[in-house]
């Protein structure tokens, strides 16, 4: 059973994440993002960025790592064998670039139960090492109940 009392909880215990050129290149290859701005630091600098730019959904790497502090904790009551990803959204203040050291705050925004399915919505705020916002990642998981 998902613990419905966790709405409003905030999790900030995940250590900072360092965005690397290697991880950006791996992720870009996996999703088929071919822009040189993901792969070539000179091209990224020529386009006005400090280093190679992450693909648009790269922030999920950082968000899922941070969300696990909540969703993978047995106290959350979320049984991962019963979870389906329902929806996801990203809002970027600026793109992530190699060299960024970012921290996360995971907010439990909503937990709603209907027809045996519990929808758990988290919002992960990603900020740079100066505290400036970089991206917001909102993710909703659908957790099937025992009878569903």
């Amino acid at each position: 059973m998902v613990d419905l009392s966790r709405v409003g909880a905030v999790f900030t215990g995940t250590p900072p994440y360092t965005v690397s050129r290697a991880k950006i290149a791996e992720f870009a290859d996996a999703v088929g993002a071919t822009s040189p701005l993901h792969h070539d630091p000179d091209a990224a600098v020529a386009a006005g960025y400090p280093d190679v730019v992450a693909p648009p959904t790269f922030a999920v790497v950082i968000a899922q790592r941070a969300e696990s502090e909540y969703v993978a904790d047995p106290a959350s009551g979320i049984d991962f064998s019963r979870v389906v990803h329902a929806n996801e959204s990203f809002t970027h203040t600026r793109p992530l670039v190699a060299g960024d050291v970012v921290s996360t705050a995971v907010h439990v925004d909503a937990i709603n139960e209907r027809a045996g399915i519990t929808m758990v919505t988290t919002r992960t705020e990603i900020a740079d090492d100066g505290g400036a916002p970089v991206a917001t990642v909102v993710s909703t998981l659908a957790v099937r109940g025992e009878g569903a």
């Binding site: 870009a28 996996a30 999703v31 993002a33 822009s35 648009p56 959904t57 990803h85 996801e88 959204s89």
Partner: peptide, 29 residues
Amino acid sequence: GMLTMGIAGAALTDWLGDPGRLVSYGCRF
């Protein structure tokens, strides 16, 4: 689901040329 979403997002930003032009992106699975 995030791979499919990532593939679609990459198709868009590759077309745009500059991935920094993407402000927000969301979908349901």
